[in-house]
Design a protein around this nucleic acid. Structure first.
Lengths: 192, 192, 192, 192
DNA sequence: GATGAATGAGCTTTCATTCAT
DNA sequence: AATGAATGAAAGCTCATTCAT
């Protein structure tokens, strides 16, 4: 059907040009359907955008959740989560670019609202893992879990972004190691 | 003169609406000048945007640098830097929103390029501080300084963003404490 | 379809107002289509202009060529050509006004270039007829055929222009007679 | 004074860009005066344009007239006139480009009217010379003098234009010879 | 289900002109 | 006599959306 082709094309076009510069013409062209077909399948540009981000977030969370059902130690869980997000920010770059850069202002309010909800849910999901760790293992510092989750996402996103524009300088293992260290142990040596 | 009024209005409008939804009409209206005056003072929308971000980055860096000239211990320096960035992301929200959310795609390439340069410079500036700490005090873990700097900015930005949309739930001190802890010591207790 | 309506309206508007004063709004109005329709059918103002002139030149040359295929004497050919150009400058006034007056500066360079090419081709076409006459009938003076062709067009254009702004004073036959005489025999009597 | 500088600059700018693309900014820049100064010296763009063309036409006619006062034979007079116009179209290219290409439509009506008057006067002046020849020397064919004058100007203008864009192919003497021949004797040999 | 010609609101930009100095 | 910051009307163009087929 057309719906799939359109969504695939739309992810690309939105991520390459940003929400506003992405034109329905371009998406139709890339999806090899007529412009009218876009409107036959989606109510409008903003709803198409919404559909894409929603689907993307759901896929990601399902995948992570599947990996975390097994009862593994917290540290392991966090390492896994970090890996998943590296994958998200590096390999599913099209989607993550849309989801994390294009959600600021300048988009129809209703879309923005729903997308923020999705991001909140994602955050809450991460926070849940942390909370769990805090209760069960009294292993974690006394953070607010939501703030900490936000911090983690931020760390990963920006490190990946930097990595992507300087791929020649680093190996992916370095990135992974530094990211995990940063998140789990912070900047300072605990020597003293 | 008009130039100042325009830049002030433009920061607001850009941050409220994003680059593309911000219209020159609105900026002119807000600055209480005629539309032509915008073009008398700036070559065009993208250059106006560029001018604003540039000026903002420069101000921020000058302010931080001024605070860090005194020979204070690294931990102190980082605390200070964190505070400055909290200020940036919370109080100079208009600017930081532009500078860190609006720099994705969909903006004229030349503007994007220069703005990325500014962000790199900002990162390099932070990395410089870390590097210094690494050399002089062998206090820091063996990170790549640039990656670490990116991680720090990311942490702060996302934590602040979360904080801003849940201001009712947290006191600023909490945010500050958690942010600093997160950055300096990471998630985990070092007990065992 | 709209394309035809637009071109018809555009010829009128361009010829009445000149390229720069002709506005896309006016053309759309005259063609009874929405402004967007202009841009749906043509990439922009300059390309619309180009399309019009191109089509016009082609029509003219085809018509003349069709009349000149028969093997008639040179003098006859030239008389015919003169008649065709009188028709062009007098009856297809809208088009010829565009094609011969609006091709100066102040128009997008690429359009100008192509339009000059068209004019050159038209000239070359005339020059070809003359050249033929020179070879076959050693009837013509020893002109450079291109220069002569340019001279002929110039003569006709300016005479027609003068005639058009003083139609009350002359009959069309006078114009035709004088034009042909001027071109074929020049100012002076060959009496002596 | 500024007036002179402005007119000099304006001739250049108008001829390079055409009336509409020529901007008052550019003229002011080129004349090295402030924009306000243009309006101090001339009521507006169209009046500045008018002033330039008027001055130009007057200069030309004065120069020709000065050369024709002496009682020389008609043929000589016409040769001289041709030479003067070659000079006009080739060497005073800036001015003649304005005067003969930019006078179509798309210019304020009142300016257009006056400029047409100037062109008419110029034509009438040439026609006067021809008329004289017709009466005194019964040497000329029985043309309408005005139509003939228009034809002459047209011939010269177009030949010069062609020559200018193919300067590599012709010597100026060739142009002069062909132009004079064309005008005085037409295309055909009178052998028979 | 799918099409694509047509739309029109809204945008950035240009530029002749004004006027306080 | 000269300036130049400021103006605002008018232009070209984009693009999400509609609708008859």
């Amino acid at each position: 059907m057309s719906k799939g082709k359109i969504m695939l094309a739309a992810v690309e076009v939105f991520s390459e040009n940003g929400y506003h510069r992405a034109s329905m013409d371009e998406i139709a062209l890339r999806a090899q359907v007529a412009k009218g077909t876009l409107y036959y399948n989606f109510p409008g540009k903003s709803q198409l955008f919404k559909a894409i981000v929603k689907e993307g977030f759901e896929k990601v969370m399902v995948r992570i959740q599947a990996d975390l059902t097994a009862p593994i130690p917290l540290k392991e869980k966090i390492l896994l989560t970090v890996r998943h997000h590296l994958h998200l920010f590096l390999d599913a770059r099209h989607f993550s670019h849309i989801a994390f850069n294009e959600l600021s202002n300048g988009i129809e309010q209703d879309v923005l609202d729903e997308l923020n909800t999705l991001k909140q849910r994602h955050l809450a999901f991460l926070a849940g893992i942390l909370e769990e760790g805090k209760c069960e293992e009294r292993y974690l510092r006394d953070f607010d879990a939501n703030l900490a989750a936000a911090g983690i996402i931020g760390t990963l996103q920006h490190m990946c972004q930097y990595y992507l524009s300087h791929q020649d300088r680093y190996a992916r293992e370095e990135l992974e190691r530094d990211a995990f260290m940063m998140i789990s142990e912070g900047l300072f040596n605990k020597v003293e």
